[in-house]
Design a protein around this nucleic acid. Sequence first.
RNA 1: GCGGGUAUGGCGGAAUGGCAGACGCACCAGAUUUAGGAUCUGGCGGGCAACCGUGCAGGUUCAAGUCCUGUUACCCGCACCA
Length: 804
Amino acid sequence: MKYEKYDFAKTEKKWQTIWEEKQTFAASNDFTKPKFYALVEFPYPSGQGLHVGHPRSYTALDIVARKRRLQGYNVLYPMGWDAFGLPTENYAIKNHIHPEIVTQKNVARFKQQLQSLGLSFDWSREINTTDPNYYKWTQWIFLQLFKKGLAYKKMTTVNWCTSCKCVLANEEVVGGVCERCGSPVIHKEKSQWMLKITAYAQRLIDDLDKVNYIERVKISQKNWIGRSTGAEVSFSTTAGDDLLIYTTRPDTLFGATYMVISPEHPYLKKWADKIENMDAVKAYQAEAAQKSDFERTEVAKDKTGVELKGVRGINPVNGKEIPIFISDYVLMTYGTGAIMAVPGHDTRDWDFAKKFNLPIIEVVKGGDVEKEAFTDCETGIMVNSGFLDGLSVEEAKKAIVKWLEENKKGTPKVNYKLRDWVFSRQRYWGEPMPIIICDKCGYVPVPEEELPLRLPEVDSYEPTDNGESPLAAMEDWVNVKCPCCGGPAKRETDTMPQWAGSSWYFLRYVDPHNDQALASKEALNYWMPVDWYNGGMEHTTLHLLYSRFWHKFLYDIGVVNTPEPYAKRTSHGMILGENGEKMSKSRGNVVNPDDIIKEYGADTMRLYEMFIGDFEKAAPWSSASIKGCRRFIDRIWALQEILTDEEGYSKELESDFHKTVKKVSEDIEAMKYNTAIAAMMALLNDIQAKGSITKGEYKTLLLLLNPFAPHVTEEIWENQNFGGMLNQQSWPTYDESKCVDATVEVVVQVTGKIKARLQMPVDITKEQALAMAKENEAVAALIAGKTIVKEIYVPGKLINLVVR
RNA sequence: GCGGGUAUGGCGGAAUGGCAGACGCACCAGAUUUAGGAUCUGGCGGGCAACCGUGCAGGUUCAAGUCCUGUUACCCGCACCA
């Protein structure tokens, strides 16, 4: 029978409509079934529309989700919108349109684009972080953090973007400039809401052992938290006060030849009348404060500083007086803001000592401290160190810490690079902080029954020039009665950062319409944790860390029942432009998914994105290669012309089918989508070579391909009256014993060089196989007259005869 | 500087230490077609060959793209964290 050419446009539309009408992919609330929660990062609905990078992740987990449904799981695969954010707000400011309208428009476009890809999201659970019914619970979580003392307001030095006029988190400052707009970032003193993520630092490290994340994600999380162990040591000073320092190398204490404190160190004020060169110190402080992050990183290697005249430190191990400097290479935000400098064994101290002509003492043998600092901890032996002499670095660390504790000069100490999370933004398009500021009562939480605290309508979305949120200008909204004392009070006008809404969104999906709680206990207990979470490497530090922190907090207060939100985390590589560079408007190499779907169809687009290369690695787009996937689908369609009436597998293709079922099943789990598709293509080639396909074979092939190309497979299934809808069938199984062929090709090597390839029965014995190999003409000629010193036999694969 | 990653045909990429280049693109030849396109069949790392080929130099092994040591280039992240 001759079939019309496959009409993808008509067919894809047809099935997308059917799926939507029948709610085919809605997750069931039957909590007795085995569950599977698949999650992809919800997008920010930007004005540019969907990027071809988005579907790579979405299709990958769509394949897993569809496979799991065929395997009988109750699958939750949801989608939503992370819609607060600066680009929308900036667009609103420029065009005088309410950000809500802009968001609605962008969401509609994104949704239409996602639906045209045939992704099996449960749209009945769609969420939007800007929906008051959603951010009600973002605010509620914030209040719980506040009540537990984990949200607090504090004057801090913050990163200030000179163009956005907005406070940035440390994480949003990239190379000293604003991550979003590229303008220079300067330091500014401002009172900010902070979240105490540092209280969870150790648990955020330890619990990585409980989850299945790809290794590089774990490593970058650990590096970001930056745990180090060492000691705090107390140095007395000629000013009377003890100066506390932090070091990871207490073993080098005898090599400390000077000390450095941060320009912001509080002792500088305290010692003002003892320091003889206070003018020089003040000048340096002013200079350091004025430097933007950008300038600081630019001159990172060039050390500057001023020696304090009139105050000296005293090394506790030997009582020697040493000078104290101020320098901006010591940060007030880490450790105690003061260090002992050991130029012999620390590169930064060495640079500083060379510049200021300070003595360098070798206390660990193994390098040449005149040429460079010797920082190796593993091989060195202690010298010039009194009672530590002769010990290894490891032994010396233990010995000195013991000594410090006994003499009350210091204690062991763990430090983290991680800092508390600056949670305030002086912007309009974010969740309002549910806090009222009362002169009498201080910071008072908005009563929970008044949530959500809605964003008021404002006249202008622009932040004020003094850096206040546009909400500050709305006096009717700002002036309220204190819920505590009833007196006049003001609302907090800062809003939350974009990270807030995305730090718990996976919890809302399990019960998105609940107005009594962020989700019901039953739904949370059933669905959590997320079984498989896929997203970009760019979110492995911030989003992952923040959401794990919030989840742990919710666990501690009994809202969720798992200490970790995600059981498994994987990452996809970027899709690059055809020229191998990152896709961007300015480079002119952007591919629009709409164009691809229009020209080739969603199934081809999905297949191509999965076939493009190793899922975890970046891959360049190729508009030529996509044709191969289109041809594959057309050939799958054309198999209908050579379909026979037989059920089951044909003799010739039986092992081929078992092998392919195995391969595709395993490859999907390992995210090796490209080789899964290659295996199906190879199978198709074999079917075509044979010239016919049985019904049983076709059914298996369609089931295997369905998660990748859901429309065409569903259509053929219906066309051929295979019974029911394809998505209601069962995932095919394989029989390990049938994955082998009757004969195998065995390679015969002589001393490692391939000399022959022989067909052998699969169950041949070693002796028979070796005999067969030696009978081969080419092999016989080479071994004649020589001694075989070794015979290697790898069944079904290879024989190696080593001769001398 | 530190941490992570990558390097294989013309291109994207395959290879539990065991046949390097699966699968696809491009290309070449043939079939079909009035022609083009589409489709189908075959070929396709280099070399006439022996052989040589996985960034480079060594090593381990009967056997190395894969393991070890060193080295180069590129990509990503962090960047004075004591």
